[in-house]
Amino acid sequence: MDYSKHNHHNGHHAKSAVKTSVSYDNGKILIKVEDNIGTPPVLAAQHEKEMHFIIVSNDLEKYYHLHPTKEQPGFYVANKDLSEGTYQAFVDIEPENKAYQVTPNTLQVGTNETSKTNLEGMDNWTKERDGKTVTLGDVDATVGEEVQLVFDTHGEKLNLHLGALGHVVIIDEDVEQYIHVHPAADDITTFIAHFTDPGMYKVWAEFKFGDNVHVYPFIIEVKE
């Protein structure tokens, strides 16, 4: 399977016919999905799940990839204790026969607000998590061109994670642009991303070693 055909991003070219709303109540995240007349859309499964739910703090320090449970059509619940602060939640779905663009849902937990951040340009391209090391090759990112993200797992064997060798989520420093990409082929850890706007972006690369999924954050710059 060519996973590159399943990339999702919130481009500026299509009007969404599906809207989402997100709320938080004492350790439960509640997600509502409906079309423009209030009807729950039918969601196609993508990478083993009907919904991939990404939530990040406004300062891009906290990152969670959750898979909410469908309580009833159009209504999903995820269990997650969130500390006080401001978050942006992205509902990654594929409604059948309806246009949809992923846009941020602001979620305020408690009263302490989290400011957005300015990402710095210099980053360490090798990161370690629980003894597993991943290196991101040099990135040459330009608006409108295919951007290759090539990850080296240093010979460590990867297990499939939600039907792929890895998942990569990319969000800009304004926490507005959302890009979710999968490997360009089913036996490599090269990902192809497309950007519509220049600026600084944070990348979270998810890889599964053994039974554990490790998340590796990187900062990249996309040029005009």
Rank of each mutant, 00 (worst) to 15 (best):
E128N: 13
Q72G: 07
Q148Y: 07
W125H: 15
Y216G: 03
V77E: 12
E34V: 13
N97I: 01
N97F: 08
I188Q: 03
Y87W: 05
A184C: 11
A193R: 04
K98T: 03
L165F: 00
E173F: 05
D187I: 04
S57M: 11
M122R: 10
N105P: 05
D35N: 15
V215N: 04
Y3W: 05
F191M: 02
L60F: 13
G155R: 05
W125F: 14
A45I: 15
A185T: 12
Y87A: 06
G27C: 11
P183W: 01
I171F: 02
T114N: 04
L66K: 10
P68L: 05
K208W: 07
L158F: 08
P95C: 08
I179W: 01
Y76L: 04
K127G: 03
G210D: 06
H52E: 12
M122G: 08
D140V: 15
L30S: 15
K157G: 06
L119P: 06
G11A: 02
K32I: 09
V77M: 10
P104T: 00
E94N: 13
I219S: 12
K223Y: 13
D197F: 13
L66R: 02
T103H: 11
T196C: 12
T69M: 11
H6D: 07
Y100G: 08
I220W: 03
D174G: 14
V22I: 00
D35E: 07
A185Y: 02
S4K: 04
Y178A: 12
V22N: 01
